[in-house]
């Protein structure tokens, strides 16, 4: 009964994106079937994510919308002043990040790309990574692509960085000597003490994690997993995290974006 209900709820939630997701899923991933972290959650947590009035992430989305419209920096311009209605100009954008950033010759993730605009177009101080403001703007942009299939990784220039991300994903690390793949490819669906191990598709970031009692970025999640195996985490914003994000998003290509998601 649960399976049917869950399937129904998801189909309704993700709408048309589901039909797009299936053929791509077969082409992109070594996993037999790809499942969002959503599918491993309790019905209660699923319901919390799906109802905009109970999803705590919507508070960040609302705050992000206010920041989108607020004038900032020496130029006194708002994001909306340049980009207009986010529902139009930002539709699909979050679903293709990280992208290749020609100025630096490397991939850049959405949070850092927002900060580029803050610096160069608004002449304002960039928001610190994991700050409430940056999470709010990222959540607001993510929401503009909710339900759309992830398209990250089409640019050929990204390939060496994606490959590096995959290497990091497969490398064992930490005192407990685990790779990401050991858990997320080799043991997904099994129980690590009380937590069910998901396949690590970053479909919902930034997201509200009940354990954090807060919104957090994908980098924060990766940091948690590294600390869990007693490895030295990378500093926020490091190239390693961006390469890992790129690898994971490419691996999840075709899956629908859920931002702002909820996770245990």
């Amino acid at each position: 009964m649960n399976r049917v209900l869950k399937g129904f709820a998801q189909a309704a939630w993700f709408g048309g994106a589901l039909s797009l997701a299936i053929p791509l899923a077969l082409a992109e991933s070594p996993l037999p079937e790809r499942k969002s972290g959503f599918e491993f959650m309790s019905p209660e947590s699923q319901a919390t994510q799906q109802d905009d009035f109970s999803n705590p992430g919507m508070l960040w989305v609302a705050e992000g919308e206010a920041l989108w419209n607020a004038k900032a920096g020496a130029t006194g311009r708002s994001c909306a002043g340049c980009h207009g209605d986010a529902a139009v100009s930002m539709k699909g954008v979050a679903a293709r990040y990280p992208v290749f950033f020609a100025e630096s010759g490397r991939p850049i993730d959405l949070q850092s790309r927002i900060n580029v605009c803050r610096k160069t177009n608004q002449d304002a101080t960039p928001f610190p990574l994991e700050s409430r403001e940056l999470l709010a703007l990222s959540a607001f942009l993510g929401k503009q692509s909710r339900g759309m299939p992830i398209t990250t990784g089409e640019d050929k220039r990204l390939e060496p960085f994606r490959a590096r991300g995959q290497e990091l994903y497969e490398q064992r690390q930490g005192q407990l000597n685990f790779s990401c793949a050991n858990c997320h490819d080799g043991n997904w669906g099994r129980k690590l003490a009380s937590s069910v191990i998901p396949q690590s598709h970053p479909t919902g970031y930034p997201l509200y994690r009940l354990e954090w009692q807060s919104m957090g970025s994908l980098q924060r999640r990766l940091r948690n997993c590294m600390v869990g195996v007693r490895a030295e985490p990378y500093p926020y914003g490091s190239q390693e995290y961006v390469d890992l994000e790129l690898f994971l998003m490419t691996r999840a290509r075709g899956m629908p974006l859920e931002t702002p998601a909820v996770r245990p």
Partner: peptide, 24 residues
């Protein structure tokens, strides 16, 4: 194996600062 080595540190990579050079 995924079982951690509890008393051997050969070949471990990026061990966290608090755990360095210490068996589990």
């Amino acid at each position: 194996t995924i079982m951690p080595p509890y008393y051997n540190m050969d070949g471990l990579v990026r061990v966290g600062r608090n755990w360095q050079d210490k068996p589990v």
